[in-house]
Amino acid sequence: MMDIRPYDPARDDLAEIVALVHRAFAEYRGVLKPESGALSETVESLAKRLEKNRLFLAEEVGKFRGAVFATRKGDAVYLDRLSVDPEARGRGIAKRLIEVVERHARETGAVRVTLGVRLALSQNISFFQRLGFVETGRQAHAGFYAPTSMDMEKRFIQ
């Protein structure tokens, strides 16, 4: 049975979460320009992220299957580093993690969830669109002149 829950520093090993993030983003190594920052995450960088971010985990029989960060930014919660173990894909874990972030956003008074997705990842863009996210803009990473990522949001009905 899959358990979706907040990170608990008393029981959750950041090294295991880093390994999950690396497995989830490994397929993009050499594909994305610039390379995804997820591939350079460390225990120290995740610990720093946790100072200002919430982390939600998908756990199954003691093994992390998914993770996502949620950061309050103004009237929004920013969804970041959505990671699903390649061995567990196709089982709705990403959707469930996004739903948890949406619930967290509503509970904390946010009016929308925002995220960034690489333009090269058309399947990911389509996935977010199916969940109700719409494009709000495009950005170019440092050193690039053309856009490399898309900003998306999902607003809540007031």
Rank of each mutant, 00 (worst) to 15 (best):
H104N: 04
A58C: 05
H141E: 00
D151Q: 06
V43H: 09
G109D: 01
H22E: 13
G62S: 11
K63A: 06
T136Y: 07
I125K: 08
A94I: 11
G137P: 02
P147C: 03
K154M: 07
T114N: 00
D80E: 12
L82N: 07
K48I: 06
A47P: 00
A140R: 07
R118Y: 03
I93T: 10
I98C: 02
A110Q: 02
R155F: 03
V43Q: 09
I125W: 07
S45N: 02
M1W: 09
I98Q: 02
K63H: 04
V100M: 03
R130V: 03
V113H: 01
D12K: 14
L14S: 09
F56T: 05
Y145F: 06
F56L: 02
S40K: 12
K48Y: 03
G37E: 06
K33A: 12
G62Q: 08
Q158S: 11
A26W: 15
Q129C: 04
D12M: 15
R29G: 13
I125M: 05
T136Q: 08
A70P: 02
V31F: 14
N53V: 01
A67H: 12
V113I: 02
V43G: 10
E87C: 02
I98L: 06
L82C: 07
D75T: 10
G132A: 11
R29M: 09
E44D: 10
T108A: 02
R91Y: 10
R112C: 00
L57C: 01
E35S: 12
R130H: 13
K154H: 08
M2W: 14
G74S: 05
A38T: 07
A24K: 14
D3A: 15
L119A: 02
F64T: 09
N124I: 01
Y7K: 11
